[in-house]
Computed example of a mutant assay.
Amino acid sequence: MSPVDDHAKPWETVRRGLLLLVSSPAGAGKTSLTRTLVADHESLILSISATTRPPRPGEQEAREYYFKTRAEFEAMIAAGEFLEYATVNGNYYGTPRGPVEAALEAGDDVIFDIDWQGAKQVAEKLPDDAVRVFILPPAWGDLERRLKARAQDSEEIMEQRLRLGREEIQHWQQYDYVIVNKNFDRAYADLGHIYRAERMKPGRNPWLPEFVEGLLDEAYGDHEPTGAPPRTTMMRPVQK
């Protein structure tokens, strides 16, 4: 059977998922970008965090967050059940390890709307799977205007978000890619290009060695001609 037979396309079915970790200061557009990317790609799922903060109006369990009591969250910490966690404004936030690792093994990709500290922790635990993308605003004034236009937070909370945003931006060099969100459509296209390119890396496609071996079998046939270049031993691709 030919490796490109319509009934045998391993590149469509057998691969390891990736983690797309997207960070930005509040108001720079990462939530809109990540949610749109998920809506446009069936293979991409949104990581759901656990938190001890109470649900806001309209929020649902296991859709926006897994809502936990402080005791439940701390028991999960003690059991090593988080890829990352932190305390923000007096509440715990964290990423449960189990669903993420199950998704990777199933070949699904997981996108994170996450701060720099969480992205760092996840990347340290799963370095071969993580891709970090930082979203910058075109100007600080634009970010302030976006936050004020939301009219969702008190003046005190907004000042906290701006303070955290200034700290967040200082960590941009820890990321693999940086996008300036001056125009949403352009920024979204850039994020999509990054995602699709990362899916093509050899280390995330364990079907490649066998597939290439099949191509070479076809290319050489039953006998390799005299003077043909030596065939390399089939090896699992190395993630870079």
Rank of each mutant, 00 (worst) to 15 (best):
M1Q: 07
M1T: 13
P3K: 02
V4M: 07
D6M: 09
E12C: 07
E12F: 09
R16M: 00
L20A: 02
L21Y: 06
S23R: 00
A26R: 07
G27W: 01
K30S: 07
L33N: 02
R35Q: 15
R35Y: 08
T36F: 03
D40N: 12
D40R: 14
D40P: 05
H41E: 11
S43Q: 11
L44K: 04
L44I: 09
L44Q: 03
I45Q: 10
T52G: 09
P57C: 06
E59D: 06
E64Q: 14
F67H: 12
R70L: 08
E72Q: 15
I77L: 12
F82E: 02
F82W: 06
E84L: 03
Y85I: 07
T87S: 08
T87W: 10
V88A: 13
G94H: 03
E101G: 00
A103L: 08
I114N: 03
W116H: 14
A119I: 06
A119F: 05
E124Y: 01
P127Y: 03
D128K: 12
D129I: 00
V131W: 00
V133A: 02
I135R: 06
L136M: 11
P137H: 05
P137Q: 04
P137F: 01
P138G: 05
P138Y: 03
P138W: 02
P138R: 10
W140S: 06
G141V: 08
G141R: 11
R146Y: 02
A149V: 09
R150L: 04
D153V: 08
I157S: 12
E159F: 02
G165H: 00
E167V: 15
I169A: 12
Q170V: 05
Q174T: 09
Y177E: 12
I179L: 09
V180D: 03
V180H: 01
N181R: 05
K182I: 01
F184M: 04
A187D: 03
Y188N: 08
Y188K: 10
D190K: 14
D190T: 14
D190N: 09
D190V: 05
L191E: 02
G192H: 04
Y195A: 04
A197Y: 11
E198D: 10
E198G: 08
M200W: 11
P209L: 12
F211P: 00
F211Q: 00
V212I: 15
E213K: 13
E218R: 12
E218S: 02
H223W: 11
H223I: 13
E224Y: 09
T226M: 10
T226Y: 08
P230R: 13
P230S: 10
T232D: 11
M235I: 09
M235W: 03
